[in-house]
Amino acid sequence: MHIAEGYLPPLHAVAWGAASAPFVVHGVRALSREVKAHPESTLLLGASGAFTFVLSALKIPSVTGSCSHPTGTGLGAILFRPPVMAVLGTITLLFQALLLAHGGLTTLGANVFSMAVVGPWAGYAVFRLLRSWDAPLMVSVFFAAFVADLSTYCVTSVQLALAFPDPGTGVAGSLAKFTGIFAVTQLPLAVSEGLLTVLVMRLLVKSSKGDLTRLGVLVSGGRAARKEAAAR
């Protein structure tokens, strides 16, 4: 659930836009480099974008008695690194802002920052960290997607808290309120997103091992992998 159109004061809207823009520009470059260097990646890139499309269209009921939707950005961040996801996430957000009146153009910068920048980077960081500790691939994938999803909505809560501090308790007070709405609702959805991302990764391991190997997804990077490399 993104911040609705017009619901961020102009100054905040511009500031988040300025914060997101470099990531998106860098992402466009990374994306065109990837496509040029590996044209065979195009199909998998499309599939990563498609996964985000599906997941962010599914509004799922949650324990708080309200609905929200997952983001689907963890998968692409693991496969193609976060900069590429900044572009794919922005496309999804634009589609929803223009056609569905979900999110908005004035809040696009803030929503891009949470869903297409922080989410993918946080998920990718968790993935790499777990893999460097030799955690199994699917465990790492689950937590990467879980964190990408949840961190997105924590950022949304912070963005709203900064824009609308509680008159009595300030930013902290309103942060508690917005976190209660977004982050708590998101917890079970983040679990669902983790499970679905594991499902797609299992299918990918079966169908496109070559691509995954080339993208370095299957390398653990931990002690076991270094030992293996040394033995070779």
């Binding site: 659930m1 908005g104 004035t106 709405i181 977004f182 609702t185």
Partner: peptide
Amino acid sequence: GADGQAEAVITELEPDYEPWFSP
């Protein structure tokens, strides 16, 4: 939707706030 609830909280925190742009 959680986004609708966030709008309600915004109105509660800042009753004078009017969305300054519509889709």
